[in-house]
Nucleic acid binder design. Structure first.
Lengths: 129, 129
DNA sequence: CAATGAACATGTTGTTCATAA
DNA sequence: TTATGAACAACATGTTCATTG
């Protein structure tokens, strides 16, 4: 369901984020914006700046697919600065999916790399190692 | 104009095809469907099957951007099996663009590879060489 | 302001239909 | 049938706006 059998070109951003978010949630570290901030930091030297929009949409999809459960929490200093945040945890289905998805994504990432390396060879000659 | 300065994720299919098609046209080998057939063959072990739709749209874009000129030709056996085909050639502007675009795409392809290799490391540990 | 979310618009693809030789 | 093309639908993504604490 997550992967079409069609002759796709490259990985989609959502699929890419899905694995990062599932793993973040598995370790149950942060809520949405924190995950985003960490991702932005993590990719800052890779020319990729994920948007809060994409992260939230991916999280919502995980939820509607039954892969994660949500819990509202209150964070901050009482009577002063409270903030409602959403805490995510994997469901049993989510744990299974993570196992499966990790395997699928490895294959897919490697396929994409091979495709781009082929393009490098086709246009710029044999790769120097 | 071809490249946005935004924090894009991965290369788009059109940009990928553009370089292949420009180089094909530079060597002035084939018309649209032949280029497509060769591309399909070329990527058959890479899980990517470009569609005639994408190839034609990319060619039209090259034309409307003034990078290539078109010439109609008739192919086949007279009075029996004629077929109108389009022959493409680079314009002067197209030659300049090809030079520039080759350089840009090299950087971009390498960026994408680095991004995916980072994902492989993040999810599956250090890469074994 | 931090956090979540949705609306809206645009960009990018894939599927199907149309036409000519 | 081969070659070209366009229409249309579907999906993916970015930009902006809204709400709450």
């Amino acid at each position: 369901m997550a992967n079409k059998k069609t002759g796709g070109f490259l990985l989609k951003q959502r699929a890419f984020l899905k694995l990062y978010l599932l793993e973040d949630i598995e370790k149950n570290k942060e809520h949405g914006l924190q995950m985003l901030a960490r991702l932005i930091k993590s990719f800052e030297n890779y020319g990729y700046v994920p948007s809060h929009n994409e992260v939230y949409k991916t999280l919502h999809k995980l939820y509607s697919d039954g892969l994660v459960k949500r819990k509202e929490e209150i964070k901050g200093i009482p009577d002063e600065n409270l903030q409602k945040i959403i805490n995510y945890q994997l469901t049993d289905k989510g744990k299974e999916e993570l196992d499966l998805y990790r395997k699928q994504m490895k294959v897919e990432l490697e396929r994409c790399i091979r495709l781009m390396e082929k393009a490098l060879r086709d246009h710029y000659g044999p790769l120097r190692t």
